[in-house]
Simulated scan of single mutants.
Amino acid sequence: MDAIRSNNNVVYRCTYHVVWCPKYRRSVIDGRIEERLQQLIREVCAERDAHIAELETMPDQVHVLVSCDPQFGIHRLVKQIKGRSSRVLRAEFPALKSRLPTLWTNSYFVATLGGATQEAVKHYVENQKNA
């Protein structure tokens, strides 16, 4: 389980499973590109005080299990990771420019992880009035 974190306004534990793919689901993430991509993802997360629990890249997709500040938001984090990695990788590996108009698709998958079931949280909320 991820640690509880805080900033000046919020105490939180928000962990997300995020998945995204290269444009047209092309298998372009391998070798030096894969190593550099992982480095870039770690850099952006470190800058944003986001904590990576797991990072796995495959030729046609990226999976990240990451915890981030809810005031910053998972959407902004993913946007920054995808934006920087696309810009840097396409500059450092020109072959990516010839194979793809952009490196990443616009979309991504995100799911939250939590320690309690939806039913347990619903029960807790429903019973707050009686507490």
Rank of each mutant, 00 (worst) to 15 (best):
E43F: 05
T102C: 12
D69V: 01
C21R: 14
I41C: 10
I81A: 07
A53T: 05
V28S: 01
K97R: 14
Y24I: 05
R25C: 07
L40W: 03
V64I: 15
Q39E: 09
I74V: 15
Q71W: 08
A53P: 00
Q38A: 02
R13V: 00
H51D: 15
A50Y: 02
S85K: 10
E43H: 12
E34N: 11
M58G: 03
S27E: 15
I74E: 01
G31H: 09
N7G: 09
S6C: 10
D49V: 09
V19D: 07
R5C: 08
E34V: 03
C21K: 14
E35A: 09
V78E: 05
Q80V: 02
G31T: 09
S67G: 13
V18I: 15
Y24Q: 03
K23R: 14
R42C: 00
D69C: 13
S6D: 12
N8I: 09
A120E: 15
D2Y: 08
P101A: 14
L55S: 07
S27W: 02
V78P: 03
R99P: 01
S98Y: 14
H51S: 11
V62F: 00
H75G: 14
I33C: 00
T112M: 07
D30P: 00
V110H: 04
E35D: 14
R48A: 13
R87V: 13
A95P: 09
N8R: 10
V44Q: 13
H123D: 15
V78W: 00
W104D: 12
Y24M: 06
R25V: 03
I74K: 00
Y12T: 03
E35S: 11
A111Q: 07
S107L: 03
G115M: 05
K122H: 15
R90H: 11
T117C: 05
A3R: 13
E54P: 06
E47A: 09
R87F: 15
L100Y: 13
T105H: 04
F72Y: 15
I52P: 00
A91C: 04
D2P: 11
S86W: 05
E54L: 12
V10S: 06
T117V: 06
L100A: 07
P22H: 02
I33H: 05
V44G: 05
K122M: 12
Q61T: 08
Y124T: 13
L77A: 06
G31Q: 10
S85H: 07
L89P: 00
G114H: 06
D49T: 08
Q61F: 09
V125M: 03
R5P: 03
L89N: 02
R36D: 06
D69P: 01
L55Q: 00
H17S: 03
S6E: 15
E126D: 14
F109H: 10
N8F: 05
W20Y: 14
T15H: 07
E34K: 13
S85I: 10
I52V: 07
C68D: 03
S27I: 08
A46L: 12
M1A: 08
A120S: 14
V62A: 02
M1Y: 06
S85P: 04
N106Y: 13
Y12F: 15
I29M: 02
S98Q: 15
A53K: 11
Q38V: 01
N127T: 10
L65I: 12
V28E: 01
I81F: 01
R48V: 07
E35G: 04
F72A: 09
G115F: 02
R13P: 06
Q71P: 03
P59S: 12
E54W: 03
A46E: 04
